[in-house]
Amino acid sequence: MQENVSPLARINPAIKLGALVYVMVLLIAAPTLRETIALLALAAIGLGCSGWSLLTLGKRVAPYLILFLLTFWMMAAFGKGSTELWSFGWFRVTEESISHAWLIATRMLAFVFLSLTFIATTDQTRFVMSLIHQCRLPDRLAYGFLAGIRFIPIFQQEIRTIRQARQVRQQQSIWPWQTFFAISLPLFTNSIIRSEQIAIAMEARGFRAERTYYVRPVVTQQDRLFFGLVCFGATLLRIVV
């Protein structure tokens, strides 16, 4: 997750998150497909302003189309309804379940667009910094979190290594929770040892609660304007459509 040069990237991350969550709440409260599609269009505009090229956009959105189909299918085949259209085995597709499926799948897609908009235009560190200053997140938690997310790729690599080691030794289990246990135990042990080292290193370098900041994220006029515009626009869409 890294910010780019788009106008959305300049918005204060905490404010941006607030505005996007407000749109999500409106989406949850939208009872019909028409309103959901209107808000989806708004989310799509946001994604369009995210500064990603069309090619990147296509690549990032494509996997979600599968998820869209999946969500649609889950609701269509397992939803309730009386006018049966098609049934096979334990699947039962009805007129009502299809219309509900459209609603839920569209809502899900709008969530995805909003998430991608946020991810595309927000730098992790700036996001956490603005949580400290705008949302009063305790700084010890915030810095702990920053230290933690640096380890995401390392943990992913570690899981791959453990899996390969298990493969070499032909340790396969048909029970997924057994595999989970076998992978998580070494992963957790390593991460506990590492956290101890990180905590010592942070305290040795004088990390404490009362601190000063070189860069202090502020809420500018532009941020207020953005927040107001998004909330106003989304509410208007919700009422008018």
Binding site: P138, R140, L141, G144, F145, A147, G148, I149, F151, I152, F155, Q156, I159, P176, F180, I183, S184, L187, F188, S191, I192, R194, S195, E196, I198, A199, I200, M202, E203, F207, A209
Partner: peptide, 29 residues
């Protein structure tokens, strides 16, 4: 939050992040 030791905060974060990474794999399954 003041009663927390630094190493408790970090171990919580690291384990939570490790769980998050494991969740990702679980989702693909």
């Amino acid at each position: 939050m003041n009663s927390w030791k630094m190493k408790e905060i970090i171990v919580m974060m690291m384990l939570a992040v490790a769980c998050g990474v494991l969740y990702l794999g679980w989702s693909t399954l």
